[in-house]
Design a protein around this nucleic acid. Structure first.
Length: 299
RNA sequence: GGCCGGAUGUCGAAGUGGUAACGAAGCGGUCUGCAAAACCGCCAUGCGCGGGUUCGAUUCCCGCUCCGGCCU
């Protein structure tokens, strides 16, 4: 039995230097004659037209580098963890088969979870009609409905989830589907190596502040064009970090400086949410961002 | 100097003679198809300072300080 292909998964909060590390690893491998494919795991970089806001900063001119996971959908479309997982799995298989090594880089923990364990998600496809209908109901009513069709499922939800309309709707969706089939466990065909980049929160804050400052002008024009082409502000894409403050600025509600401040705060809050998620992932091996240079691809 | 208004947590902001809404920030979490999302918990023994009235005052009264406006 041949050894399972080793796949690096680089995670960490925003502004921790994940991309830079991936590029360095890829370059080093290229020198040794090994080509690398990078798959991004980022729920917002999948949008076409969302570039400076999401910091798509991998230089496209990097030769010998195949890059996936970016610009997959239009601003009025949506993607979810299952779709991402299917997509990334397919790419992974293809690239490995072609003899390339693969590095997955991303900050969307939930996508990564679905990616490494396909089948961890209930095999129930979203039911838009049902969701639309349920969306109008208050939380109380959602709880009531779930209780009627699957009391156990409701009882199993924690304090936070039972108050969360989205989780309730999803639970109802699963419970009311014809065959709430369990997931099909899939054998691990790959050996995933999780690498976490850590650096002090104070450093993250500094980097974020600098980045926001640098990006704001072009981010403003990006939001303008987005708004011009897709005026419906209820689209999920509009919940991307930085957009709300920029919209308020464009609406004349707040100043440029306030928008910058708010965007920065949003980014920092996001970084902390990411840390909360990654903290629980036991498989991650953490490295201090400034001592990462010694890391290299095992052969 | 006079008159009026205000002073509540880090910020914004309600409010009551019986012991401080709410929003933001902050802190800690949740997580099986919207995840840069959505959601949950914590966060002023204290209401500018000093007196007084009262069983009890942040709330009423007196004085003071500071801020804003108007007048001289």
């Amino acid at each position: 039995m041949s050894p399972k292909p080793k796949v690096f998964i680089i995670v960490g909060p925003t502004a921790s230097g994940k991309t830079a590390l991936a590029l360095r690893l890829a370059e080093a491998s290229a020198k040794a004659g090994q080509f690398t494919s990078i798959i991004s795991a980022d729920s917002r970089q999948v949008y076409r037209g969302l570039d400076v806001l999401t910091g798509k900063d991998i230089p496209a001119e990097k030769a010998n580098l195949r890059l996936f996971g970016l610009d997959l959908i239009d601003p009025d479309q949506t993607m979810n963890a299952a779709q991402y997982s299917d997509y990334a799995r397919a790419i992974l298989a293809k690239e490995i088969k072609a003899g390339r090594q693969v590095i997955v880089v991303g900050g969307t923990g939930f996508y990564l979870k679905a990616f490494v364990s396909p089948g961890s998600l209930a095999a129930v496809t979203p039911n838009d009609r049902l969701r639309q209908e349920l969306n109008r109901l208050p939380v109380r009513e959602l709880q009531h409905r779930l209780k009627e069709i699957d009391a156990k499922r409701l009882a199993a939800m924690n304090q936070s989830d039972v108050a969360n309309p989205r989780r309730l709707i999803r639970a109802i969706e699963i419970a009311s589907s014809p065959s709430p089939s369990g997931s099909v466990p899939e054998g691990h065909r790959y050996s995933f190596v999780w690498v976490g980049l850590s650096l002090p929160l104070e450093e993250i804050k500094k980097k974020i502040a600098k980045r926001v400052d640098r990006r704001l002008p072009s981010a403003i024009s990006e939001v303008k064009s987005l708004l011009a082409a897709y005026p419906d502000r209820r689209l999920p894409i509009y919940t991307s970090l930085g957009i709300a403050p920029i919209l308020r600025f464009l609406d004349g509600e707040i100043s440029h400086a306030q928008a910058r401040q708010l965007w920065t705060t949003e980014e920092v809050q996001y970084a902390k949410r990411q840390l909360t998620w990654f903290k629980k992932q036991q498989q991650i091996i953490w490295y201090d961002q400034d001592r990462i240079s010694s890391l290299s691809f095992p052969t």
